[in-house]
């Protein structure tokens, strides 16, 4: 088995709305190795969630994957018939959403929906499935798991519900879990517990994670590699610490400077001027150019992908490497 788990080439997911074509994901390419944790960051509308949804083929009309390729273990997912895709989802690739109530059915007990998920992919008896469910719940830190199987989702707290959603995603030890803002809705003390547990679970079972978040600090504490998205495109990609310590793309720099943690208390923050652009009316060339202090007339042309020793970025006027 090769180390390469996922290979995404020139992924394009567009939404055909009445107002025009929204290019939510426009030419995204990346690869992932087994067991790797990849952080995907960006602001609202950057296309980070749509990228995640595309990996599982969960894009609904008017959206559609219009081009590119997604290969999981060498198998092409773009254009795969729905029944084959359904055999894959939950078994080899799974998803954790921001709001666990999106995953959980409110009128079924947790045990009932977990055994459904188990028996969808494996021929086991109901009793055996229940035992499996209890053991997965125990793994994600739910006390007294066997008894909690008979509880309904509303009887759990927000943090516990997210644990159940994670347990369901982990059930079949998939090679890849896409986690879309899994801790954003949680309080900090609960967030720290979930971060810790997901990282441990991924390490124990060798599951790779795509960790989608707007929070650079969270991503920096779990992900080995980071991808920064802006207006549907990858603008910078590389080892997390390197990229955050020494960014080459002015947008990555701008995001970092916007964090209160990087400034002295009470001092003005170095803000990025302007607003995130509408995906219906993107400027030609680099979409960040209108907000960029380094922009020149060259930026009306699409910047090429460039690479230095460790990372890739897309900018005509990259920042110098520090040291």
């Amino acid at each position: 088995m090769s180390a390469l788990l996922l290979e995404v080439r020139d992924l394009r997911t567009h939404f055909f709305t009445r107002a025009g074509v929204v290019k939510a994901v426009d030419g995204v390419s990346f690869t992932m190795e087994r067991g790797q944790v990849l952080g995907l960051v960006g602001e609202s509308g950057s296309g980070k969630s749509v990228t995640g949804f595309s990996l599982l083929g969960l894009v609904d009309p008017p959206g559609r994957i219009v081009g590119g390729s997604i290969r999981l273990d060498g198998e092409e997912l773009v254009g795969m018939p729905l029944d084959e895709l359904r055999r894959l989802r939950g078994r080899r690739i799974a998803m954790v959403f921001q709001d666990p109530m999106m995953t959980l059915n409110p009128v079924l007990t947790v045990g009932a929906q977990m055994t459904l998920a188990i028996r969808a992919h494996e021929k086991v008896t109901g009793v055996a499935a229940r035992e499996r469910a209890a053991s997965v719940l125990t793994r994600v830190g739910i006390p007294d798991a066997a008894a909690r199987l008979d509880a309904y989702p509303h009887e759990f707290s927000g943090g516990m519900r997210q644990r159940v959603a994670i347990a369901i995603a982990m059930t079949h030890s998939p090679g890849l879990i896409v986690a879309d803002e899994p801790t954003t809705a949680l309080d900090v003390s609960i967030q720290a517990q979930i971060l810790h547990e997901m990282r441990e679970l991924s390490r124990e079972s060798g599951t790779a994670l795509v960790w989608i978040s707007h929070d650079l600090a969270t991503v920096s504490s779990v992900a080995e590699r980071i991808m920064v998205m802006y207006a549907g495109r990858l603008v910078e990609e590389g080892p997390t610490a390197t990229v955050l310590r020494d960014p080459r793309h002015p947008y990555t720099r701008g995001l970092l400077d916007s964090l209160p943690a990087t400034a002295r208390p009470g001092q003005e923050l170095r803000q990025v001027p302007g607003n995130t652009p509408s995906l219906l009316a993107l400027p030609p060339g680099c979409p960040f150019a209108p907000r960029c202090v380094r922009a020149s007339e060259r930026c009306v042309e699409d910047p090429e992908h460039r690479v230095d020793a460790v990372r890739a970025f897309r900018c005509h006027h990259p920042l110098e490497r520090a040291a």
Binding site: V188, L195, A217, S220, A241, A261
Partner: peptide, 8 residues
Amino acid sequence: DSVPRLVL
């Protein structure tokens, strides 16, 4: 202690 820090 629970607040994730920017790890560089």
